[in-house]
Structure formats: C-alpha cells, structure tokens
Design a protein around this nucleic acid. Structure first.
Lengths: 223, 223
DNA sequence: ACCCAGTTTGGAACGTTGTTCCAGACATGT
DNA sequence: ACATGTCTGGAACAACGTTCCAAACTGGGT
C-alpha cells in the first residue's frame, strides 16, 4: 500500500481539475496542463482516472454534491431553492452546463432530479403528469443556466481582448443589434430589445421557474 | 472568376458537411474526412470557410432554414407546430442539439425565437413577461429535443456493439435501474420508472410544451 | 537486513485533430 | 500570349487524448 507524502489521489486530481475548469473552461482542462499543475506525468493520472470523460463526470459530481441542500419549506419554495442552487452552481462553474445539458443525468444530477420530482409529487400533480412536470423543470433549469453561462463566458472572452467590455456593455450591444433589426421582419425582437438590456439574470430565471410552476399548478385536480 | 466543372463552392461544402454530421455526428466531421469526400485538400476548404465553428454554424442554418414553416392557425397551435418542427429537425439531425443548447442564438435560430415571440405576443401576454415566456419556450424546446437526441445517439452507440439493443430495450434497462433504486432514497424515480419505459417521446415533448403554454395562459390578464 | 511482488509514477511515443502555409493550377482581362 | 488575381491540394505544425513501459517506491515475509 502506498502512503507517500506526495501522494497522488483521485480526490486531489478531481479537485485540481475543478480548479482548472473554473479558471479556463472545459477546453482549458488538458491532461498536460493537469500533469504540470500536479507536478507529475500524464500516465500517473490515468492510473487513477480512466479517461477525460470520467474525470469530467467526477468533477461534476464533486461540485454538484455541495450545492444542493435545501431548507424545509413549502414545495414551491423548495423547488425554487433547488433551482436557484443549480443556477448559482452553474454560474460559478460554467462548464457544468455542458455536462448537464446533454443528459442522461447520473449520480448527483439524478439525485437533484429525484428531489425535484419529490416536490412535484408533494404539489399533488396527478401521477401520469409527474414525469413530464419534473422533466420540464429540470430541462428549463439546466437550459436557462446554460444560456446564462454562455453569455458570461462570451463576455469573458471579449473582455480578454477589450478589457473595458463589461457584461452590461455586451448586453447593450446585443440589445442595440435587436433594435436595429427591421421592425417589419423582427417585430418581437425589436419590441423586447429594451428588456434584454435591463433584465436581471436571476430575476428572469426565477420568473421562468414560476412560469412552469404556474403551468404545473394548472394540472392539479380542482378542489 | 472561376467556373470549373469541379467547382468547390461554400454550398457544396456545407451540404456535404451536413451529410457527414447526420451520418457520424459532430465528432465524425473532420476536415480530413471532409476533404476526402470532396476529393480535395484541407486548404481548399479553408479558403471557403474560416474554421470548423463557422462551418457548424453554416450547417445549422442550412438545416434550420427548411424546418420552420408553419401553417396559419391559432397562436397556441402555431407554437406547438413550431416546437414540433424544431423537435423533429433535431431528431433527424441530432448534432443540432449541441449547437443550439449553448446559445446565443443567431441567424436562423434567432428567427425561430422571433416567431415564437410573435405568437407569445399574439396570446396577449403582458409586455414585461414576453421575454421570459418566449425564452422559456425556446429553452425547453431545445433542451427537451437535446435530451431526446442524446438518448437516441446513446442507443445508436450501444447498438453498434450489441446489434439487438433497440431504443425500447435501452429504456427498459434504464427503467429497471430506476426501479432497482432504494425506494427510501429515491421514491420519485422508483415511482415513475414505469412512465420512463412506456413514454412516447413526441407525446411527452408536446405535454411539456403544453405545460409551459398553461403557465403562459395564467399570465394573461383575466377578462 | 534483505529482497520480492505489487503498486504507483513520470515521461516518451502514437495516432488524430484543427489550422496554417505555400507552390502551383486555373480562369480571365489586356 | 502573358500577367493577375482566384482557387486548389497536400505537406507541415502544434496540441490533444491516450497508451506504453522502465523505473521508483512501498509493505510483508524470511
């Protein structure tokens, strides 16, 4: 049994991988860079981890495990808390979006799906509609957070070239582009360009969750 | 101006790229394979297309352009038709999911978003909620179709190794796995395992769209 | 104290990818 | 016919995920 001082454990590898993913995104995580950071060779890492896909799965689980505790409350409130927890986790770790967006959900992600489903059941949704409801919630949460993460990482890339470009400025540019569209061809985008500029991400996200919750409420058998 | 018989045009490149994407997925589209198919070199392709990302964008637009016509009807029905059109397009071209899931939506995808928004406006949704409503619809449609595409391509990969594994059989396996979970820890998944096995993709998808439409209906000022 | 078997390491090497580079082939206006 | 700008095709480069293997290390039996 090994027990060196410079021990290379699976946990240490995953933790460093998470750091690098946070810093440089999914493309930034390479086995060479990871080797360098851990002061070892690529082969040593492959002893603890089968391949990059498994490493990403492990990183996803590691990050998701911390971000999903919910205080007891009414089912709707618990769903909102669960949703915000996932949203914030993806905001801090944008690479999560890519992992979750293209299911199938497993381990920690599946656990979150389970918790969403429990609250859907608690809401009194008829059994045949429970699968649809919980799936719709999960898909929207992950999808919306993914959009947000994409915007944020886009802003980061542009900021690298032009340091004074804030996220606000980026939205202003996109918003102006929508406003510049021909109102005859794009009446809707032209109309809501202002909302795009002024919207708050978390607020919009919660409004979307509430929209789905309202739809779910309509499924409940009338008292 | 060139006008050879073996002309290599941007359209021909994009069309061949779409074929290869359909046949072998995004990983299957390499500039070498594309060069071979077009009987030319990689450099010739780069003269017409800046890089792979632009090629994928062009392929996305090319495929999306055909799949978004909608017969005139009530706004809800038009939204459903738009949704099904996108769902089917992603079903036929699973690589679309990866392109759309991580916005920002542009060109053709943005046009679809516009059309969704127009119908949302036609539904009488108050202006401040229009952005949220249209975004929720778009995110759910793309997200749900992406999940479906992921399942389908997963089934295809397994079928390559074990030719008798149908999509139905795969769902049965996953469903059995859910049923095998500890009902104490996973009461929800345990409960709905049966629904997972028997569900019809398009039907579930439309149910999800209707769920959001119901939520949107609740936003309408009461008459 | 030694050595052996098993575990773990680190770096070289392989095949494949996106992309760049450039010498030459082609088509056209003079 | 020739010069010019457009277009081609294949060689070359850097970087990637992954595999391979000789060496270093560890703990247990003699």
């Amino acid at each position: 049994m090994a027990n060196r001082t410079d021990a290379l454990s699976r946990e240490r590898i995953v933790a460093t991988a998470v750091q690098m993913l946070d810093a440089t995104g999914e493309e930034g995580l390479t086995f060479r860079a990871l080797s360098a950071q851990l002061k070892t060779g690529a082969g040593a890492i492959y002893w603890h981890v089968a391949n990059k896909s498994e490493l990403l799965d492990a990183a996803t689980d590691a990050v998701l495990a911390g971000a999903t505790t919910v205080a007891e409350a009414a089912p709707e409130a618990e769903i909102r808390a669960l949703a915000l927890g996932l949203f914030d986790a993806i905001d801090v770790h944008p690479w999560l979006a890519g992992q979750l967006a293209q299911g199938p959900w497993k381990s920690e992600a599946l656990r979150i799906f389970e918790r969403l489903g429990q609250r859907v059941q608690a809401l009194g949704v008829p059994a045949p509609a429970q699968f649809t409801s919980a799936t719709a919630l999960m898909i929207f949460i992950v999808g919306a957070a993914a959009q947000n993460a994409a915007n944020a990482s886009n802003a980061a890339k542009i900021r690298a070239a032009q340091p004074d470009a804030s996220r606000t400025a980026m939205l202003a540019v996109e918003s102006a582009a929508w406003e510049g569209l021909d109102p005859g061809d794009y009446p809707f985008l032209h109309d809501i360009a202002g909302q795009l500029r002024e919207h708050d991400d978390r607020e919009q996200f919660l409004a979307g969750v509430d929209l789905i919750l309202a739809g779910i409420a309509a499924l409940r058998p009338q008292a």
